[in-house]
Design a binder for these strands. Structure first.
Lengths: 259, 259
DNA sequence: CGATATCTTGATATCATTCAAGCACAGTGG
DNA sequence: CCACTGTGCTTGAATGATATCAAGATATCG
């Protein structure tokens, strides 16, 4: 299920390499740290890890145990769901990983975790040794790798609040806002988004039934808020109306916006 | 709401100071790291932070914004709920913090967060500066502080799976197992637990209605699995039956057991 | 272009919430 | 010591939201 693409210098090099000016100081203000954690600083600083990384391409499903111990994975491309199948009947997607996100298989505490992605995703695979060496050389890198999981945690908290406090329509809106902000492309007043999950995946992520997901998407279509273009493409036509449907839209945009 | 107890040497000193032999090496096996993260290594290693820490005692409710920027808080005593009131009607407890857990207010991404605890809780409050200095001196300490949030994240993932996949009775069982493992005291075949939250708090933590919580606790009482002793004391009489009620009991015990 | 998987949508069932009434408990003052 | 009062807990009946089931439609891929 995993195909190794080869060491450094593979075909995947077009990262979003925005410039960001990060001063290194352990004593800098907390607000700065937060901004940095929440921003997408990941890949530009991480770029130097590329040389020590193995590129790993995922099909649509992969057991976390097969990732091996002693490695750290960093998402380079695609959107990956972390799916817990602790029980055969329980199929929860506990988080979505986006480019720059860090995955440490050892710290994924639940047994029988699987990674899922609709379209293929690419990871950098690093040994902890290599990561530690590089991190020792470059404090910025250290921060990028070690602060990122904290940002991911913050997103998990938000996701809990989403599932805990919102009804099914609000959750769907939350999901559309999240992926719209993350992977949406401006397309003439609308935002075009490639769905990173099937209906079942979306349902598992939002703790809903797949039929319910379908039903609500249909109602959003009939309201003219979104439009479907094929099975995996969605067009958000009325962003304002969409955000109005979700009480947590502000927080979602805040956390996912800069990443 | 916050009463400062004074600098180092306050009355709170009886930590669980089990000895643990932790070798410092950036290259140690991943399994070791996981074990350490999941274990309750926190307080013994953290003890030296005590000298740099301010002791802070919480009443039962406190806005996270009042914690101030630039500080790191470590739970010394008690159980603290992180409650998000992003919307007036949405009242979700996104996580419970136990002794040794780390709270970095800046990284709590949701606005209008509150900390709640039924009985008073004690934190160590450290400036990031002090923490960075101490961490630079002591690699073990560094690990204790920086790995702990990752363990907390793992618990959040489990909590998502719990809420996502379990019905109301299973969730209540999950909660009882969690606090039983965390703060339960052996009491002649039974396990005695002090509830760290009111019915409403439990409901918010499990994404249930307070009435439902009450109903299910009553049914557990009538099944003879638990027994009530006053309003905040609960006796788990049949641990085996309780764990049998929750499909995720194994995972819960694994994650909360050593902490 | 046909086979298969995925999605849609109605009817029905179920679970959890809501509402409302009554109860238990802790603290207070007689 | 006991009634009083407020708060939080309990529990039944009604409601509502979401899941389930089943049949049919549509997209995707070989």
């Amino acid at each position: 299920m995993i195909q190794v693409k080869g060491m450094a210098g593979g075909p995947i090099t077009n990262f979003q390499t925005e410039v960001s000016h990060i001063t290194m100081s352990s004593y800098e203000s907390a607000a700065k740290i937060r901004d940095r954690v929440q921003s997408g600083m990941g890949l530009n600083v991480l770029a130097r890890l590329q040389e020590r990384a193995q590129f790993v391409r995922f099909g649509n499903r992969c057991a976390a145990t097969s990732l091996g111990a002693g490695f750290v994975y960093i998402v380079a491309k695609g959107v990956v769901g972390i799916e817990s199948a602790a029980h055969p009947d329980i199929r929860a997607v506990t988080a979505l990983l986006y480019p720059g996100d860090v995955l440490i298989p050892e710290l994924q505490a639940l047994p029988d975790l699987e990674l899922t992605s609709q379209h293929s995703a690419v990871f950098w695979k690093l040994t902890m040794t290599a990561l530690a060496e590089e991190a020792a050389k470059d404090p910025q890198l250290w921060q990028a790798v070690f602060l990122r999981p904290l940002a991911q945690h913050a997103r998990s908290q938000l996701h809990i609040a989403t599932m805990s406090g919102l009804n099914s329509e609000e959750r769907i809106a939350a999901f559309l806002i999240e992926i719209g902000v993350r992977i949406g492309m401006q397309a003439g007043g609308s935002i075009s988004v490639e769905l990173p999950l099937t209906r079942y995946g979306i349902a598992d992520y939002l703790s809903l039934n797949a039929d319910t997901v379908s039903r609500i998407l249909s109602s959003l279509v009939s309201e003219g808020i979104v439009k479907r273009r094929g099975r995996f493409q969605i067009l958000i036509r009325d962003w304002r109306a969409l955000t109005a449907k979700c009480p947590l839209s502000e927080a979602i945009i805040l956390l996912h916006g800069a990443g």
